[in-house]
């Protein structure tokens, strides 16, 4: 069974690649792919006011099937983009979780193939509360074709200000566990299709279990190649 890289057309700023069995190509050309049958889940998400989550996860699901083999990672990365947080504000007496929007800026330096250190600065803003996190920790990377998967565990501080009454602020520990996938756009740039994080904070003497989703662009410097393999992508 042979493998062939088939261009599937433009994906945002670049293009994606899908692995297909060459023996199946005629079949693929003959019939359409069945659509992803996640309508029930999407409806539940929309019902709960989670359109942003639905959109980002849908985009990521479209992307995850478009990868092939590669053997290098960037030496350094700088991510910047949009970030959405579902903040666990009932722990503060709110009626419902808060939807916060903001930014995520994250520099990373990879010490070896598949391993690096990362810092993350995020700011999330809502009508009643703001949260800013500064965290640092290890990240683990796994390249597959034009996709670069990563996972990280970050630790630091979270600072929150709540506009209730005269206003209340607090600073507390934050733990961020999550990961995501970057897609090559060019040798220098990648598109972070999705980054999903569980963010645990202990603001105002209570524990919040939050979910954060980020997307944006990654700028990259240099590459680290896996020993014994030739690069499949041109390096800057």
């Amino acid at each position: 069974m042979g493998l062939e890289l088939v261009r599937r057309g433009c994906f945002t700023a670049g293009y994606s690649i899908q692995v297909v069995d060459t023996q199946e190509i005629p079949k693929l050309r003959m019939k359409k792919h069945p659509p992803l049958n996640a309508n029930g889940v999407c409806a539940a998400l929309r019902h709960a006011g989670c359109k942003t989550i639905s959109l980002v996860i849908f985009l990521s699901s479209m992307v995850l099937s478009h990868f092939a083999m590669a053997q290098e990672i960037p030496r350094a990365q700088l991510f910047g983009g949009y970030s959405y947080t579902r903040f666990d504000s009932p722990t503060l007496g709110f009626a419902n979780p808060s939807n916060l929007s903001g930014f995520n800026i994250s520099p990373a330096f990879n010490l070896a193939y598949g391993f690096g250190v990362k810092a993350e600065l995020t700011g999330q803003y809502g009508s009643k509360l703001n949260v800013r996190d500064v965290t640092v920790g290890p990240q683990f990377l796994y390249p597959r074709g034009r996709a670069l998967f990563f996972a990280h565990a970050l630790f630091g501080d979270s600072r929150s200000f709540v506009r209730v009454g005269t206003g209340e602020g607090d600073t507390a520990r934050a733990i961020v566990l999550g990961g995501g996938v970057d897609l090559d756009v060019s040798p220098r740039f990648a598109f972070r299709a999705v980054q999903v994080d569980y963010v645990r904070t202990t603001l105002f003497s209570t524990t919040q279990n939050n979910v954060r989703i980020s997307t944006g662009l990654v700028y990259r410097w240099h590459t680290i190649r896996r020993r014994g393999h030739k690069p499949t992508l041109s390096s800057p």
């Binding site: 889940v41 539940a44 998400l45 709960a48 989550i53 996860i57 995850l64 979780p97 979910v211």
Partner: peptide, 25 residues
């Protein structure tokens, strides 16, 4: 298989996100 796993992830995320409304006064 991959599709089922994806749906599971979506459901998990929906639960983590706390999409359901609260019943409190």
């Amino acid at each position: 298989m991959k599709r089922a796993a994806l749906i599971c992830v979506l459901v998990l995320l929906a639960g983590l996100a706390g999409c359901s409304s609260s019943s409190k006064h």
